[in-house]
Design a protein around this nucleic acid. Structure first.
Lengths: 362, 362
DNA sequence: ATGAAAGCGCTAACAG
DNA sequence: CTGTTAGCGCTTTCAT
């Protein structure tokens, strides 16, 4: 009986006219009035609750449809005390530059988190690296915080307010905390082991001059590996935003004497500078030097043949969202700490001896 | 008199205990009760409204502070019918892959829009490319839609609902619409003119095989320029996600006979493939062929010497947010259509004759 | 099965 | 100047 739609619309127009004329969004009240039922009934009908005369339900729904009713997310949220919004705070490098989406890890993370949130029925807002103020102005059910430095004020506030949140493994000493991340030390060790299997004798590392978790853990892993293998750790540090610094660091790392015969950089943008420096010195990959870098990036033309370590940003994001939404929906996820495997994509730049590789690189 | 804080806290604990014990967030009511005033007074005191005894105001604020009160964003929003949330829907290439943050334009756009929104006191949520459903579940004050194809369902819905929104210049025929974007035809023409000044006689274009606005307008600009300059347009099209396709298209474009002596690609990821193809054919830049590409990207090592057209994604985003928040705050921004200039960053790859360039490239 | 009324937490309007 | 009341739009008892 869609033919009644026009009639319903007229009814609504009448209500609007009577109420002063100002155009207004239709509410349950309007639907109820036009369908000639109580608001409670209208609400139940639209939400498929309770047992009621199917004819009544249909009519109510037709009215709602006809006058373009949809429930106010705001009112509903006030009632349920849940907004369906989760926040994402990306806090790389101590809240420094906000150009983080330039880093493929964060771009992919945000992308995947957005999609995952939507699939769980949540919307995702990007929180500023500082300003916990926003938390008070926006109704947020929970927050994902990437790489919070120790004592991070946002995390402190979240804890104080008892707001659900998931962070990286930095908080993993608290068994109740929700954490997701990679085992970054293990990842670097994996790369070094790969180099070793391919015949490398001296491994060099190009790493950020920052001191956030990622860098610290990567360095720890590298030093551990070097010690276990009787090597003196060969490390160069670089700004990750300044191309000049990156190029200089790459050159230092590859300079004689004592030039390493394998180099790895934990920083995505430094990868191309490493390759460029190798070229400058007329070194051949993989004959003279094995090269690998860390990035999520679909490799561009210049790096397509270079071995790449992926941290699986998407997986991390998905796990984080899953953890958070589980808690929000009242369930108790296990485990509360999740480690996402990294993946080494081996290409020609670090491959001298294919047979040396295990079946499945991890 | 911060010394009363402890007393206030005890009061609140008492209220909680009396009301059944369940831990609950403090509300204005609680503040009012403890400060021994009415809720209205409490509300006014906390919002700095009305004239009232400063002592009273102070006491109320101390109570609020002591028991950790902050207003519920939800309740406030319900009251004002404004949520302080704006949506961003990035709809590139007909809503195809959700990997759009890989494209530097969108990454920068999102980044800048987030920051700009925060500066205007809004939070920004990323909307899915499809599903207008979310619009109904999340309280959103307005939406920014990038590159909506003609007849886009999201835009249709926004119009129908009378929800504030800003789009790109595709909607610019409606003088009331809020639009921000580049003049893409002009941008391509600018690149071609630059090539010509540098002595190019045949310009080739590498462009996406999609049919969204950006591509269409770029092509139109190129064809217009070619005609005006008596050239037969030399165009190759490529998938912008498939490296193999990009490489193949770059090779075709540079293949003899009739090889162009200047090439431009509108697609950021294709830039590196163009450079690679030039290298393969042992062509020199800029002696044999001038090269330029379009990207926001801080160039990586491989492309640092290649001329690059920036669309100024950040500026576009900022203008969009400015436009939207102006409307939301009730003002009537002028102009409602804004064109953001592009910028040509000239490097060695397209520079044979420095004197040929005007003082300020646009 | 259905309608009336209470209340989520807040602010705005009015009374005192 | 302060306290009380009436909603914002919805869901959820609770009577009927």
């Amino acid at each position: 009986m869609g033919g009644d739609a026009e009639y319903y619309r007229e009814q609504f127009a009448g209500i609007l006219a009577a109420r002063g004329g100002r155009r207004r969004r239709p509410g349950v009240k309007d639907v109820a009035a036009i369908a000639d039922v109580g608001v409670g009934t209208a609400s139940d009908a639209l939400n498929g609750k309770g047992r009621m005369n199917p004819a009544t339900r249909d009519r109510i729904r037709q009215v709602a449809d006809a006058i373009g009713y949809y429930p106010s997310a705001l009112a509903r949220s006030l009632q349920s005390n849940k907004s369906g919004i989760i926040g994402l705070s990306i806090r790389p490098f101590g809240g420094a530059p906000l150009q983080y989406l330039e880093v493929s890890y964060y771009a992919r993370f945000l992308n995947a988190a957005t999609v995952a949130a939507l699939e769980h029925g949540y919307a995702l807002v990007v929180l500023p690296p500082s300003v916990p103020t926003l938390l008070r102005n926006i109704p947020i059910d929970g927050v994902i915080v990437t790489d919070p430095p120790p004592g991070d004020p946002l995390v402190t506030e979240l804890k104080a307010r008892g707001l659900a949140h998931v962070t990286d493994l930095g908080e993993a000493d608290d068994p109740k905390a929700l954490c997701v991340g990679n085992d970054q030390a293990k990842a670097v060790i994996g790369v070094c082991d790969h180099f070793k299997r391919q015949g490398a004798t001296t491994v060099g590392l190009l790493v950020a001059d920052a001191d956030e978790d990622y860098t610290v853990r990567s360095l720890a892993g590298f030093r551990q590996w070097a010690e276990a293998n009787g090597q003196i750790p060969r490390i160069e540090r670089t700004s990750i935003t300044d191309p000049v610094s990156m190029m200089a660091a790459a050159r230092r790392l590859l300079a004689a004497p004592g030039r390493p015969d394998a180099v790895y950089t934990t920083e995505a943008p430094a990868g191309s500078y490493l390759v460029k420096a190798v070229g400058e010195q007329n070194l051949r990959m993989p004959e003279d030097v094995l090269v690998a870098y860390c990035a999520e990036h679909a490799p561009d033309a210049g790096l397509s043949e270079v071995t790449r370590l992926s941290l699986n940003a998407e997986r991390v994001a998905e796990e984080a969202v899953d953890l958070l939404t589980s808690v929000l929906s009242g369930s108790d996820p296990t485990p509360r700490h999740r480690i996402v495997d990294t993946e080494l994509h081996v290409h020609a730049s670090s491959l001298r001896n294919r047979n040396a590789e295990p079946r499945k690189a991890r």
